[in-house]
């Protein structure tokens, strides 16, 4: 028989390294033709940080994304940005590149304020123009102001760095400020369980993630969807099998990860609860998506069968074994292993 069930998983997760400094630095230079060079140590391993960081810089300087040339993760030339881990790069390196861009535009701001005869705080940068926020019509072209700066022998370049506000944890009590900010998420899963074989089919996942501000919504969805597939694998099939310290399944033929056919429809819901200390309100989303998936799936199986499961991966055998126990048929026992 097939039984359906529905389950929720919720999580909160600290962004950045736990209770320790983990700064990131960046350099930004704005060239004569409004091309921007961004140097960041941040390694883009596919999550899209090169794009997101460039977007932050472009937004700060009021130029198009295509103008920002990113040089990243080259230890020969880029400043340290820390590891691409801990869901930290958008938040921490995002702040660093934004500050670097702010510093790079400082001379432009001063120059424009003088030319427009307004206070520096009232100056805005948008669409290659610099203007007083109260009167966008009297705007100066960005390139003209850059030229004015050059005439004075001023370069438009800056560096920036950011270190999240944390405090070391007390060794006794564990108290302190482990993270400057947190991501929150809830996922919902619908499953179908075959009560005679123990096979689970995940039919749908809905994943709602508070990311502060989605700098690049498509990339955020990509992180959510990918995290759900890792979470589904974690829930149902992924396991490093050890024997006397040796891994018995070191390859993709035995360590199974979800295929195209294992993945259900995923509906990503991006929640934007602005983080005051984040770049344009952003936090992180790298790891959070894979955290609540397994709980949601296991809760859905529990909901379908009325049995609570606490062990991962939840294989068909574990499910059938628990069903047999529930029906007083006895769980499966192992004899000699022939793996």
């Amino acid at each position: 028989m097939k039984k359906r069930g529905w389950g929720l998983g919720c999580m909160w997760y600290g962004i950045g390294n736990t209770g320790m400094p983990n700064p990131s630095g960046a350099f930004v230079e704005l060239l004569d033709d409004a091309t921007v060079i961004l140097l960041t140590g941040c390694a883009d391993i596919g999550q899209g940080s090169n794009t997101a960081l460039a977007q932050i810089v472009a937004e700060e300087l009021g130029v198009a994304l295509e103008m920002v040339k990113v040089v990243s993760a080259d230890t020969g030339v880029t400043p340290d940005a820390g590891a691409t881990s801990a869901s930290r790069q958008t938040y921490i390196s995002g702040n660093a590149v934004r500050k670097a861009a702010e510093t790079a535009k400082k001379p432009l701001k001063e120059k424009a304020a003088a030319l427009l005869k307004v206070a520096e705080e009232q100056i805005e940068f948008r669409d290659y123009k610099i203007f007083p926020s109260f009167d966008p019509k009297c705007a100066l072209p960005l390139k003209n102001v850059i030229r004015e700066c050059r005439r004075d022998g001023l370069l438009t370049l800056g560096h920036g760095s950011f270190n999240p506000d944390t405090a070391e944890l007390d060794k006794e009590s564990g108290r302190g400020i482990p993270y400057a900010t947190y991501a929150f998420a809830t996922q919902w899963a619908e499953v179908e369980v075959d009560t005679e074989t123990g096979e689970v089919t995940v039919l749908k996942i809905v994943a709602a993630h508070d990311v502060g501000k989605a700098i690049n919504p498509k990339a955020v969805e990509g992180q959510i969807e990918g995290g759900c597939s890792m979470g589904l694998g974690y829930a149902l099939m992924e396991e490093v099998i050890l024997e006397k310290g040796m891994i018995l399944n070191p390859g993709l033929s035995n360590y199974l990860i979800p295929t195209f056919k294992d993945m259900p429809e995923i509906i990503s819901l991006i929640v934007e609860e602005e983080e005051e200390t984040g770049p344009f309100g952003a936090k992180g989303v790298g790891e959070p998506p894979l955290i609540p998936t397994a709980p949601a799936i296991l809760n859905a199986v529990s909901n379908a069968l009325g049995i609570h499961f606490t062990e991962l991966p939840l294989t068909p055998e574990k499910i059938l074994s628990a069903l047999h126990e529930k029906n007083n048929k006895g769980a499966f026992q192992e004899g000699d292993l022939d793996a």
Partner: peptide
Amino acid sequence: PRDSRFRGSAAYRKELARVM
């Protein structure tokens, strides 16, 4: 069937054999 770390216990697969 024999117990297998990958395919599961013999007891489980005997039950599967019946069902399938």
